[in-house]
Computed example of a mutant assay.
Amino acid sequence: MKFINDNQLFAIMLTFVIGNSTIYPMGIEAKQDAWIAVLLALLMGIILVKIYLQIQASFPNKNLIEIIEVLLGRFITVPLGLLYTCYFLYISLLNLFDISIFLNSRLLEDASLSATQIMILMIIFYLLFLGIETMARFTEVITYFLIIPLVIIGIFLIIGSGELNFDNLKPILSQGLKPIIKVSFSQLLTFPFGDMITFLMVWHYLKSRDYLNEISFTSTIIGGILVCLSVINMIAILGVQLTKHTTIPIMSISTIIDLGEIIHGMDPLVAIILFITGIIKLAFTCYASVLSFITTFKIKKRKLVLIFFILTLILIANNSFNPVSFLIFLKDSPENYIQLIFELAIPIILLLICYKKKKKSV
């Protein structure tokens, strides 16, 4: 059995929430109240994480697919496990496009999107090939010695730049609560907080579960607050309209920040944070997809499945999407409601069955 320690789990969950959540203006459909929508989604996200933790607590040494098999039987597990495999693969695909579009628009402008995606997937393949322990150690080192210091530096640079205009956040609640609730539930709950169901494929690797709840809630809350601060910065510096119509507003902000003769722009700092956190999230969603598949069909040769999944992602990415349609898809598609089936409906059913079985056993 392979193990993940408490510090590693905190690092993984924190970077997972941040991931690609700061690339786009989360909840901007709520206009200047987008930050309130993020906080509301965070509250709902905490409830989601609580549901996932309760399921894991009932079966501490099993992953999501194994739990489904215990509760629902083999007949249901095969189709549902395959659906979850596709779900995790789909989340991986969205993460892949987020990172590749970001890199192509800012860092690798002369490279083709296909070449960028293949480069990213080769990095992911290498991380997954090394295994969950290596991925956890890599995330721990990167988070504590690079991501967290850079985020702290970035916050101080933005505050010291004098570019923040909090009048852009007014008037508060000018449209009432309805649009905020709608955006929170239909968009922000699934991404990034609903994606945390991925950890039902990871938590069983924990060496000790003494602080699992505390670590999970703390990392989710801190990550959610950082996403909220990102949205506040976008609106306060760029305004609602410019934030809404800018492809990657966080990078526009990074070019504006100027501290006289000391620092001109934060592009490298922001680019490093977005790239690494995006890679880490993509690695764990890909891992969840592979683990879901091999658990469902009880396959021993994990590396062969890994190669197959990486090739599948390359084929789908290069034949089914383009950057423009992808961005429109993210904003207008009702797919978030479909995701809620996997992130909310099925977990609630599993939890209710857990409670029912416990009562019968008592």
Rank of each mutant, 00 (worst) to 15 (best):
L103K: 07
L64M: 06
T116K: 06
F138K: 01
G27H: 03
S105R: 07
E69F: 01
G162Q: 06
L113N: 14
W35Q: 01
V78P: 05
I55Q: 11
D167E: 15
L157T: 05
I76K: 06
I118M: 01
I28S: 07
F129W: 14
I120F: 01
A37R: 13
L80G: 09
I153C: 01
P79K: 10
L80T: 06
I47G: 11
I124T: 03
N104E: 14
I155L: 14
L83K: 02
T134D: 13
I101F: 04
P171F: 14
G27E: 02
I99P: 00
I118W: 00
D98R: 05
L93K: 08
C86I: 13
L93Y: 01
Y144G: 11
P60I: 08
T85D: 10
N95C: 05
G154K: 14
N63H: 05
V70E: 14
S161E: 09
S58C: 12
I158R: 13
V49C: 04
P149V: 15
E69T: 05
L107F: 11
E140D: 08
I120Q: 02
G81P: 07
S112D: 09
N165K: 13
R74N: 15
I55Y: 06
L103I: 15
L107C: 12
L42G: 00
L42H: 03
I147E: 03
N63V: 09
K62Q: 15
E133G: 01
L48H: 14
T134P: 02
L93Q: 08
Q32F: 05
I124F: 11
T134N: 14
M122P: 02
L42F: 01
I158G: 03
F97L: 15
S100Y: 03
L130W: 03
E29A: 11
L121H: 12
G162L: 15
I55A: 07
G27P: 00
I118A: 00
G154V: 04
V70C: 04
Y52D: 07
L128S: 13
V38Y: 05
I147D: 01
P149N: 08
R137E: 13
V70G: 02
L127R: 01
Y84G: 06
F75R: 14
P171N: 04
I172E: 04
L71W: 06
L53H: 08
V70F: 04
G160R: 12
V78F: 04
E133C: 00
I123D: 07
N95S: 12
G81M: 01
I159G: 05
K170E: 15
L80S: 07
L157H: 14
A34E: 04
I91P: 00
I132M: 11
L53N: 10
S105L: 14
F97N: 15
V151E: 03
F156H: 10
E140L: 13
L39R: 02
Y52M: 06
L72K: 00
E109D: 13
I28K: 12
L48E: 12
L130K: 13
A111S: 15
V78L: 09
V70W: 06
F102G: 02
I55G: 13
N165R: 06
G162C: 13
Y84P: 12
G27V: 02
I123L: 10
S105F: 10
P60Y: 05
D98A: 15
Y90H: 03
L93G: 04
F129L: 12
P60Q: 04
I155E: 05
M119P: 00
N165V: 08
